[in-house]
């Protein structure tokens, strides 16, 4: 759901850029405080994996596709602010080198996919008491739907398209895409957990350190 240049007016993309600028600044501070040295290699490889996975669109039926967002995944393994930094970096690389997501829309894309999506996944993990298959699936699903809804709101705010039409259409497709997000995230976390990583660094486990 990378917004290209041309979909948003100046007031909307400037506003979104201001909000995400503040959020990313806060994320830098929080992650700088809480990230443990042993988590740094994980941070890096999650950036690599999320970039790669975002290239692999899967069909969801009706001639439409979706791809992993990765916000719920990074949140499950490291915490929401680390997820914000990872996703922001990936989005910058995509916009600068691959023309995926507009330069002017970067702030809005960061807000939707790097700030709102991890925050929603984080809230679901907190509400459901940790990172387990069901909460991972729901957190992933909700994170995608929330990012889609935010995208729709921005498009409506910009006067590009009426809210009722774009909100229903965006949320409708992402109800399906979110299922793919949930399945991939569950599988990836299970793979990492089996290797023992999550037990050592899981941000939602009792007795673990601060949420990074």
């Amino acid at each position: 759901m990378h917004i290209p240049d041309g979909f948003l007016d100046a007031k909307t993309w400037l506003g979104a850029a201001a909000v995400s600028g503040v959020a990313v600044g806060y994320g830098l501070k929080k992650t700088g405080e809480a990230l443990q040295d042993r988590q740094i290699p994980v941070l890096g490889v999650l950036g690599a994996f999320i970039f790669a996975a975002q290239m692999v669109n899967f069909p969801v039926g009706g001639g439409t596709s979706g791809h992993l967002l990765g916000a719920a995944l990074a949140t499950a393994l490291l915490g929401p602010w680390s997820a914000t930094l990872i996703l922001t970096t990936v989005l910058i690389i995509q916009a600068l080198f691959f023309a995926d997501g507009g330069i002017t829309a970067l702030g809005a894309n960061v807000l939707n996919m790097a700030v709102i999506a991890p925050m929603v996944a984080h809230c679901v993990y907190r509400l459901l008491g940790g990172v387990r298959p069901l909460s991972i699936f729901l957190g992933s699903w909700c994170s995608v739907i929330a990012a889609a809804a935010a995208t729709a709101l921005e498009l409506a705010l910009a006067g590009t398209v009426p809210l009722s039409a774009v909100l229903a259409a965006m949320v409708g497709w992402h109800l399906l895409i979110g299922i793919g997000e949930g399945l991939i995230t569950c599988a990836f976390v299970a793979f990492v957990r089996r290797s023992g990583l999550l037990a050592a660094t899981g941000p939602y486990d009792e007795g673990e350190g601060k949420i990074a």
């Binding site: 669109n57 439409t64 596709s65 979706g66 791809h67």
Partner: peptide, 9 residues
């Protein structure tokens, strides 16, 4: 091998 269908947006 990624799907070339348009994404949600």
């Amino acid at each position: 091998w990624a799907s070339s269908h348009p994404d949600g947006l």
